[in-house]
């Protein structure tokens, strides 16, 4: 496969298919790839403009208003008739 004596202090000129986890490898290993991913992800996080802050007040949903509005819409036509039918008090 390889003969250290031939290359001595230099790295191997070629990397065999089975030798990718050894020093002097030519192709990135899985560890190298994940490091690269971290770097890219970190850059995007720093460069992105979206920042989400937790609200300091409790989130209140005003359900009563929605319910009342629905009722008012339902009653509008009838109330209009009522007003027209009672012109002495409206």
């Amino acid at each position: 496969m390889k003969n250290p004596q031939l290359t001595n202090r230099a790295h191997l000129a070629t990397t065999g298919p089975m030798d990718r986890n050894e020093r002097g490898k030519r192709w990135p290993t899985r560890r190298g790839a994940s490091a690269l991913g971290l770097l890219v992800g970190g850059t995007m996080a720093l460069g992105g403009c979206i920042s989400v802050n937790a609200p300091d007040k409790p989130i209140v949903i005003e359900l009563n208003i929605n319910i009342k509005q629905e009722v008012v819409y339902r009653l509008a036509a009838d109330a209009g008739n009522t007003i027209q039918d009672n012109p002495d008090i409206f």
């Binding site: 339902r74 009653l75 509008a76 109330a79 009522t82 007003i83």
Partner: peptide, 16 residues
């Protein structure tokens, strides 16, 4: 209309 008097009055108030 199976509604409360106040809701009906409020609706009529809007129209009035």
């Amino acid at each position: 209309q199976k509604a409360t008097i106040d809701d009906y009055a409020f609706t009529a108030g809007c129209l009035a």
